[in-house]
């Protein structure tokens, strides 16, 4: 009974269900926020799985998701700006809770992994994840208000 895999299961199950519900219902602004939440829910789960399976090589997956997730959200923020601009999508509470959970998972993993190259990689992934999450929700909250030409 591996605690890390259990934590990953809870994160994937809970986060995935919330994201799915968020992305299928509600106004387009709320849907793009749910897509942004998908990155910040699944990335810590991938890190936990990497630790649970005892495979440091799986951290590359979380690194790539932390890099490309916010890029996907920026794509939607940029190309859906005419849908988003009328009511502006700001969900700062959600963003900060997701960032907090991600940070908690990274800190727990750093403690488990111990100092060394692996911890540096984990911190890089954590930093990329949180900055990407915050910037993407910043972009959704009106980063592209005046973009006509694109």
């Amino acid at each position: 009974m591996n605690g890390w895999i259990l934590a990953a299961t809870v994160a994937l199950g809970g986060g995935g269900a919330a994201v799915l519900w968020g992305v299928t219902t509600g106004p387009p602004a709320r849907r793009v926020i749910a897509q942004n939440l998908a990155t910040s829910a699944v990335c810590p789960a991938l890190l936990l799985l990497s630790q649970g399976y005892g495979r440091p090589a799986y951290v590359d997956l979380a690194l790539l998701l932390a890099l490309l997730g916010p890029v996907g959200t920026l794509v939607f923020a940029r190309l859906l700006c005419d849908d988003l601009s009328e009511e502006g999508a700001s969900a700062w509470a959600l963003t900060w809770t997701a960032a907090g959970l991600g940070a908690a998972a990274v800190v727990a993993l750093c403690v488990a992994v111990g100092p060394g190259r692996a911890m540096v990689k984990l911190l890089v992934v954590g930093a990329l994840l949180i900055s990407g999450n915050v910037i993407a929700s910043r972009a959704l909250a009106g980063g592209f208000r005046g973009v006509r030409g694109g």
Partner: peptide, 8 residues
């Protein structure tokens, strides 16, 4: 040209 928020 499109103006984009500074942090983004």
């Amino acid at each position: 040209p499109a103006e984009v928020a500074r942090p983004v």
